[in-house]
Write a protein that binds this DNA or RNA. Structure first.
Lengths: 161, 161
DNA sequence: ATGAAATTCACCCGAAAGGATGAAGACCAT
DNA sequence: ATGGTCTTCATCCTTTCGGGTGAATTTCAT
């Protein structure tokens, strides 16, 4: 059972090579027949070679078309998400997506209320430096250059009220 | 002159066909030589045919790659765009009550979007000092100590979105 | 138990913000 | 035309913010 699965997997992975092998075999058979026709009865070796050339050119084209990697074109589709503004519901998805921790969220919320870093430090019972570190991390995660920008983005994303 | 231009144009438009023709001629010449080698001295007709097959397969692949339009695989990526469903209506009463001027409101709005004073100055075509003056006046009128506080209060009062 | 993430704190330095004050030109209404 | 507001800009000075870096400790899951 395990072996069979592996075999099938192998075949599907190398199906192009496999196809090429089979095609080649078939074509060689046809060629043998043509060889008889032309070599023996007609002696038209040039025509024979021409046929082979055309045939294998076609085969090459076919192969190339089959094997060519498609170019990948990415199209952005904007999906509108309406935010109801009546009761605030935190967008937990965005929080986890951006990797914002609890403590960082604490700082962000106080920031959005208009608190200075010193005031935030006092409210959270941590040092000013700690608040600064959280703030810096927030700016990175929110891709913001200033606290005002961070607040605006956070509000847009439904992270803070 | 006109004829020559037309000829050049024709050649450039059909350069792939032209290339194919030249290649074919060249290859046939090589084949003729191979024919002698193998047919007369070696009699290995199968090897000869095999060579032709491989050669023209390669030619076909090359041709296909040159001539084919690239396959395009389109990947749709949904991007969520957050939209508020309640239109913002400015509270004009509060504006007049607080005595906030047009220019000050301009500054306040850009502030709320997360712009720095320098950026605001550039957008409004005034100097940085002017923006600072407007900001200071805003902080007085809104009874705010910081821009973040001013923004929060302004949003609460319905002065900015 | 070991490595990753989170939390905490420190120091240095430059950039930005904010406070105080003065002042000039434009506009508007009485 | 005169006073009041608005807008503009300036200078000086202080505070706050933010970047960069390093590091100790805790927490937590594998």
């Amino acid at each position: 059972m395990e072996n069979m699965n592996r075999t099938i997997h192998f075949l599907s992975r190398h199906k192009h090579n496999f196809l090429y092998g089979v095609s080649l075999a078939g074509l060689l058979f046809i060629l043998k027949w043509l060889e008889l026709r032309y070599l023996i009865f007609n002696n038209g070796i040039e025509i024979y070679i021409g046929s082979i050339a055309l045939l294998f050119t076609a085969l090459g084209i076919w192969l190339a078309i089959r094997l060519m990697k498609p170019k990948i074109k990415t199209v952005l589709v904007e999906k509108e998400v309406y935010i109801s503004n009546t009761p605030f519901i935190r967008n937990e998805k965005e929080l986890t997506r951006l990797g914002i921790s609890k403590r960082e969220l604490d700082v962000l919320q106080l920031m959005a209320k208009g608190f200075s870093n010193v005031e935030i430090a006092e409210h959270l019972f941590v040092s000013l430096n700690t608040v600064k570190t959280h703030a810096s991390n927030l700016f990175m995660k929110l891709d913001a250059k200033r606290r005002t920008q961070a607040i605006e983005k956070a509000k847009q994303l439904g992270i803070v009220a």
